[in-house]
Amino acid sequence: MNRREFLSRTLRAGVLAAAAGSLSYWLYDGRGPGPDSTAQGNLVVLPDFSVPELSGRMSVITGADRIRTVDMGLKAVGGIEAFIRKGDGVLIKVNAAFASPPILGATTNPQLVSHVATLCRKAGASSVVVTDNPINDPQSCFTLSGIGDAARSAGARLMLPTGSSFAPTTVPHGKLIRDWPLLHAPFQGVNKVIGIAPVKDHHRSGASMIMKNWYGLLGGQRNIFHQNINDIILELAMMVKPTLVILDGTTSMMTNGPTGGSLSDLKQTRCMIVSTDQVAADACGASLLGKRAADLPFILKAQNAGLGTADYESLNPAREAVG
């Protein structure tokens, strides 16, 4: 009896010792952690969302009614069906940066958001996500700007940023966006990206339009990038290659951007720009602010990086007037 007990005990002790030994051996790390102990492996990179055969399309529609101008503008670049196919997952990046009412023009117009979302649904998109990482509290931004309700009413899913929505990204060939938190969760299952932004004056960069609007995809202490605003806008454009961009110049914020705050900051510029070239769209939008592309270094930098053309006339944009 004693002998058997001892043998069984020996066996168990042996197994325990062997388990401890092999676990230690398996997990052995002779060198210790490296300079950056965060795992580099889980960096995410956004894919190219553009449709190659539709590159370089652009329309500039004049009119005061956003629904009509955007309809016309989309038709002129080939119709929404050319961009959104059945089953597509669409992400609409709006500008919901501030908790201010739609009338102040600091954020993307809610009717425009709901209309485009509806068009995407009609074109067969299986899901439409509306997102932004605003400067003010996300919940109040989406509520007060009206974008939250607009998105929901059109059957789109509103995704507010939470701690776990971000994943680190590095922009290939980028110098600034390296291992930086990107609002990545909304991109799950997305294969088409549409950027919708208003035309606004911007104190630091001169103008905030389509390319600057991708700023809302960054997380972390992103304000550090304001030390080099033109290069960060360039890298944002490098980071996001959208399917389509809609630059809303129906009313433009001419002064006190990007927040504005008074109706007197706004001007009826009656223009809707739809393009597959985000650089051309911004260059065209600059003219609404009374600026030339050459006044905005980020536009020239983006052009030089091969992201599009600042000479938007070379795309022969379709021009129409409605209403």
């Binding site: 401890a20 030994g21 230690s24 997990l27 790390d29 210790g32």
Partner: peptide, 28 residues
């Protein structure tokens, strides 16, 4: 120390393997 660092980092840093000696001897 050995087990603590193993739980937090899933590694055994170099010299911490010495603890195996005490572990095995204690088991025995």
């Amino acid at each position: 120390v050995h087990v603590g660092v193993m739980l937090t980092t899933q590694t055994v840093y170099a010299g911490l393997s010495w603890a195996l000696v005490t572990t095995v001897l204690t088991i025995v």
